[in-house]
Deep mutational scan, measured.
Amino acid sequence: ETEYTFDDKREADRAAKEAQNNGLRVHVTKDGNRWKVRID
């Protein structure tokens, strides 16, 4: 399990989409004014 934090939602969405394309499970959550992408 890996977690990334992004300031920009577009960057978070791009990272999530890339991980999904690689067959990974992805969870995107909002943390204040930042975005967390957790990859299982």
Score class of each variant (00 low, 15 high):
Thr2Gln: 12
Ala12Met: 02
Lys36His: 10
Arg10Leu: 13
Asn33Tyr: 03
Glu18Pro: 01
Arg25Pro: 06
Asp40Phe: 12
Thr2Glu: 12
Glu3Ala: 05
Glu1Met: 13
Arg25Ile: 13
Asn33His: 07
Ala19Ile: 08
Tyr4Asn: 06
Asp31Lys: 04
Glu1Thr: 14
Asn21His: 10
Ala15Cys: 15
Glu18Phe: 05
Trp35Val: 04
Ala19Lys: 03
Arg25Trp: 03
Ala16Met: 08
Ala15Glu: 03
Asp8Val: 05
Thr2Val: 14
Thr2Ala: 11
Arg14Glu: 12
Gly23Lys: 03
Asp7Ile: 09
Val28Ser: 01
Asp8Ile: 04
Ala16Gly: 03
Glu3Pro: 02
Ala15Asp: 01
Arg34Glu: 05
Ala19Asp: 01
Leu24Thr: 03
Glu3Thr: 08
Gly32Asp: 06
Val28Met: 07
Asp13His: 10
Asp31Arg: 03
Asn21Gly: 11
Asn33Met: 04
Leu24Gly: 05
Leu24Ile: 05
Asp40Val: 15
Ile39Lys: 00
Lys17Ile: 12
Leu24Trp: 08
Lys30Leu: 06
Arg14His: 10
Glu3Gln: 06
Leu24Asp: 04
Glu11Asp: 14
Arg25Lys: 12
Asp13Asn: 08
Gly23Cys: 09
Glu1Trp: 15
Gly23Asp: 03
Arg14Phe: 09
Phe6Ser: 02
Glu11Trp: 06
Gly23Trp: 00
Arg25Ser: 11
Thr5Gly: 05
Val28Tyr: 00
Ala16Glu: 04
Arg25Val: 13
Gln20Leu: 14
Phe6Tyr: 10
Leu24Cys: 10
Lys9Glu: 12
Phe6Met: 02
Trp35Ile: 05
Ala12Ile: 00
Ile39Glu: 03
Thr29Asp: 07
Val26Ser: 07
Lys17His: 11
Phe6Thr: 03
Lys36Glu: 06
Ile39Ser: 02
Ala19Thr: 02
Arg34Met: 06
Val37Glu: 03
Glu18Ile: 14
Leu24Pro: 01
Lys36Phe: 07
Arg34Pro: 00
Lys30Glu: 06
His27Asp: 07
Arg14Thr: 08
Lys30Ala: 09
Thr5Lys: 04
Thr2Tyr: 15
Asp7Thr: 10
Leu24Lys: 09
Val28Glu: 01
Arg10Met: 13
Asn22Lys: 15
Asp31Tyr: 03
Ala16Asn: 01
Val28Ala: 01
Arg14Cys: 11
Asp8Tyr: 06
Asn22Phe: 01
Asn33Ser: 07
Ala16Thr: 05
Lys17Met: 12
Arg25Ala: 10
Ala19Leu: 15
Val37Trp: 00
Ala15His: 09
Thr5Phe: 15
Thr29His: 08
Ile39Pro: 02
Tyr4Glu: 06
Thr29Ser: 12
Asn33Leu: 06
Lys17Cys: 11
Arg34Ala: 05
Ala19Arg: 03
Lys17Ser: 10
Lys36Ser: 03
Arg10His: 14
Phe6Gly: 01
Gly32Leu: 01
Trp35His: 04
Val37Asn: 01
Arg10Asn: 14
Asp13Ile: 15
Arg34Phe: 07
Glu18Ser: 09
Ile39Ala: 03
Ala19Glu: 02
Asn21Met: 13
Lys30Trp: 06
Glu1Ser: 13
His27Glu: 12
Val26Tyr: 02
Glu3Cys: 14
Lys9Pro: 11
Ala12Phe: 01
Glu18Ala: 11
Arg10Trp: 15
Asp8Gln: 06
